[in-house]
Write a protein that binds this DNA or RNA. Structure first.
Lengths: 133, 133
DNA sequence: GACAATCGACGAAATCATTCGTATGTTTGA
DNA sequence: TCAAACATACGAATGATTTCGTCGATTGTC
């Protein structure tokens, strides 16, 4: 009696899956061992655990795998920006009542941002509305 | 062989729990029936399911309950801003490589923001760094 | 008070997410 | 060549999450 399965598209990665995706986005297409080495430096996790996860992700369509080489090389199947957009949108709807302003404000106040970062965000805002004031 | 239990503090609400918290933040302290009515308008979910979830959340310390009235009234036990900060921080670390700028940029490009909203965000930025340009 | 409606507790089941042992096949290097 | 090391598959265990049925208690209505 659990929740019915979600539409395969728009399926958000789980926590462990997100770690693996992040690794692949950062380092590019990688073998299981490479991903494991990176993750193991942060958390205690076994090689076969990572393998299993990546196999499942490939089945789900989250990863693409190249079986023509050995060891096999995995790459993210979805664009980083797409996944980020889905997850931000989800968070927005789930606990920010859909208010982008609230989310941005919360993000800015949660983590200290450098003046450079703030300036960069201003430029993004300018690009959105032409810099009206 | 699942993931070990997390520290009770800093425990992020699950998906279903987040929906309930959002309802309570939006409508204030509510009965199970009220929460259910609100949620049922969005998804298909049973009354006893919501009840059970809210009981569990009360046990976990996510909700406070007033048993002196009938029906009982539940309210969020943690501040909305705190939970939002935890969840944004988590998303930041998990798939944005800790870059607030990326997250903000993604949020802004994912959802159309009104000029008013953009102006409000600018004011927040000004408050952070005094409006340096 | 009798009856119906509502409330609340509880247990159990289904599914999901994560973990890893073990078994088997493949490659490498002495 | 042959063994050691590595790669991959697979199944199963475990805990977390979500679901809801059912039963007794409480409340409201006539």
């Amino acid at each position: 009696m659990a929740r019915p399965r979600l539409d395969p598209e728009r399926r958000r990665p789980t926590e462990a899956e997100a770690s693996i995706l992040a690794t692949l986005w950062e380092h590019g297409p990688s073998t299981v061992r490479q991903v494991h080495e990176h993750l193991a430096s942060q958390q205690d996790v076994g090689l076969t655990t990572v393998l299993k996860l990546m196999q499942i992700m490939a089945e789900k369509g989250l990863l693409a795998r190249d079986t023509s080489v050995r060891p096999q090389v995995f790459s993210p199947a979805r664009d980083q920006a797409d996944v980020q957009a889905d997850m931000v949108g989800d968070l927005l709807d789930r606990i920010f009542g859909g208010s982008t302003e609230n989310l941005v404000l919360r993000a800015l106040s949660t983590r200290p941002s450098s003046p450079e970062e703030i300036a960069a965000i201003r430029r993004h805002l300018d690009a959105l509305d032409g810099g009206d004031r």
